[in-house]
Write a protein that binds this DNA or RNA. Sequence first.
DNA 1: GCGCTACTCTAGACACTGTCTAGATTATAG
DNA 2: CTATAATCTAGACAGTGTCTAGAGTAGCGC
Lengths: 195, 195
Amino acid sequence: MSDRPFHHGNLRSALLERAESVLRDRGLDALSLRELARDLGVSHGAPRSHFVDRQALLDALAERGFDRLAHAMREAAQTHADDVYDSLVAAAHAYVDFAVRDAALVDLMFARHLDEAAAGVQAAAGRFFATIRELVGTWMAALDGDDIERMSLLISATMQGIATFTAAGRVGPAQSDELIRDAVNGFLRSGHRRT
Amino acid sequence: MSDRPFHHGNLRSALLERAESVLRDRGLDALSLRELARDLGVSHGAPRSHFVDRQALLDALAERGFDRLAHAMREAAQTHADDVYDSLVAAAHAYVDFAVRDAALVDLMFARHLDEAAAGVQAAAGRFFATIRELVGTWMAALDGDDIERMSLLISATMQGIATFTAAGRVGPAQSDELIRDAVNGFLRSGHRRT
DNA sequence: GCGCTACTCTAGACACTGTCTAGATTATAG
DNA sequence: CTATAATCTAGACAGTGTCTAGAGTAGCGC
C-alpha cells in the first residue's frame, strides 16, 4: 500500500530526536506519540515497540538530558580550568543556558515522581550529581574548603533556581548573568571558611 | 431527571478548591475538567462558564498560589521579626514547605509561558515579588546592605532551587534544612558588604 | 408583580489522545 | 532454509478538551 520500507531502521533514536525538538519548540503538552509517528512516517502504534508508555519516552528523554547537561558543564569548567572563579561562572552559565534552551526537558528531569522514578533516570541523575561533586571537588581543593557534599547541593540548587527564573522569563539574560556572579561570589566566600 | 439544583451556586470556587487538591495528590496530568465536573455533580460543559480553557483554570490556580505563598512567607517572617537570621530562615522554610506540599502548583506558577502569561497571573506574580522585595528590604536595613533588587532575586532564586530539589526528593528534609541555613548564612555575609 | 436580559448549566458532537489487541512483515540466529 | 524474535500495521476503545445550540434561572428595571 505504501512504498515506505516496513522497517524504519532506527525509529527509537528518531523518536527521541524529534521529541526533543518538539519539547523545545512547543512544550510538553504538545508532545504527542501519534504526531511523532505521523511525522516520521510510521503507524501510530509503532512507537510502542520502543517505548511501552508515553512516560517511558519522557524518561528516556530525561536520561539523555542528564548526560548532556553533565557533559556541557564538564566542558565549560574545563575551558577555564586555570581560574576557579571563571570556571565556576562558566559551568553555571552552561547549566543556566541549558535550562533556558531546554526548559521543558529540565522540568522533566527534575519532575516530582509520584510513583518512583524509572531506574534509568535515577541512574542518569546519579551520574549527573557525581559530575557536579567532582567539579566542586576540584574547585574546593583550590579554596581549601571541605564538605563537598553540602557545597555541591547548594551550588546546584542555586543554579537550578536561577535557571528556573530565567527560563520563566522572570529575569532577563543580563540579570541572569548578574545573579550567577553574585551567587558564585557567595560560594567563593563560603568556600574559604564555613561557619 | 436529576434532583440536584440547576445552579450549583459557587461552582467557580468549588472547581478551584477541588483542582488544588487533585493537583496536590495526583499531579497535573491527573487534572481533568470532566472529572472535576463529575465529582462536583455537574455536567461536563459547566466549567466552561467560569473558565474558557483548561489553561484558564490553571492560570487561576497559579494566581491563587502566588498570593497564598506571599502570605505564608510574610507570616513566617513576622513571627521571628526580632532576629534577622531566624526571620530569614523562617521565610525560607515557608517557601520550601509550600513548594514541597504543592509542587505541581509551583511548577504551574513558574512555568515557562510560550505564549504570554495571562494578565492575572502576571499581576499576582508581581504582588508576590513585591512582597519578597519588601521582606528583603527590612532584612537589609538591619544589615546595612543595599541593592535590594539583586538580593531579592538571589534569595528567591536560591529558595526556588532548594524547593525544586526537595520536592523532587533529590534531598531529604534534613538536608533541605541544612541547605537553607547554608544559603541564609551566605546571604547574611554578602549583605554586610558587597564585592 | 412582570418581563427581559445576562448568566449558568445541560447535552450532544467532534477531533484528538494514549493504550490495547491481533496479526502481518521483516531481520536474524541456528 | 527455517524457526524465532523483533518490529511494524491497523483497528478498536475509553477518555479528554473544546465547540455548539438550547434549556433553566436569577436579578434587574419597570
